[in-house]
Amino acid sequence: MTTKTTSLERVLTTLGFKEPDRVPLFLLLSMHGAKELDLSIEDYFSKAENVVEGQLRLRKKYRNDCIYTFFYASIEVEAMGGEVIYTSDGPPNAGKPIIENRKQIESITSISIKDSSCLNKVLKATKLLKDKVGNDVPIIGVAMSPFSIPVMQLGFSSYIDLMYDDPILFNKLISINETFCVEWANAQLEAGATAICYFDPISSSTIIPRDKFLETGYEIGKRTIAQINGPVALHLASGISLPIADELTNMGAAVLGVSCDEDLGKLKNKYYNKINLLGNLNGIEMRRWTVNEAESKVKEAIKKAAPGGGFILSDNHGEIPYQVTDEVLMAISKAVHKWGTYPISL
């Protein structure tokens, strides 16, 4: 009697740079759960149970190899007292920065996760999902890097100013954020998450030069990831990685989320046997793909990155836009199941 490979087994095999039965598919869908339940995005995220049901339906529909407990990026600043702005067709967005004046950093303290209703919703959803899927499917939790979350805390330009102008306040803020990030990531792991996606777009060479990364995001990331009690995927959320490739492989992460701005073949050559790749379908362009285009893009990605394992097919940003149709998502899923079976023959 043969037993069917579970999603988790498939993922673990590829993470060991070996070829599983087929390329694992991580459709990182958050808002699409609202469509499944015919709810507005705001209503959908108002209850953990909605997200549980949404994720289970999406996994079944697209034969997805993960559960994604990511609600929205601004949930962490919401927990810190920030405003969240809901729209009908996009991710809930951070409102006005919570730190309007740098001096506020001097008196800032870390928040308590157990007292945060929004974070507890995520933990509840994680626990319920773990009860449902057990060890068959990896549950991917999300934590914003202590180095990237200040974009929402201060606003982008004010944060870059701080990074260059005021190392004392910068370090103070990072230290607070580090404590929060580790606690938040570990709380999700305790609730049942299999791994944490550590989003760190500011570390990418799209946003800061290599020398700045070495003195900031690199050290912060190494310290933070070392304290997270489970596997970590380092995701640059569409940012490029090759100028800092050697350092990224040395930060303690098992997986790297890569950008469609870089050639997947080059990425594979650079990173194979060092760090696994997650990517890199263009989520923005995906909005207007035809079914044939979707199949062609999936084939191209598989051809370049799947041989030898070490590859999970996903989008390049870590969140597929709400506007991407079911038809295209289904075409991606079908293409992975058709062309992603090992040995790859493309």
Partner: peptide, 11 residues
């Protein structure tokens, strides 16, 4: 071209 970072453009 990807040789200059956004923070450098901004500053």
């Amino acid at each position: 071209k990807g040789t200059v970072a956004l923070s450098q453009v901004y500053m």
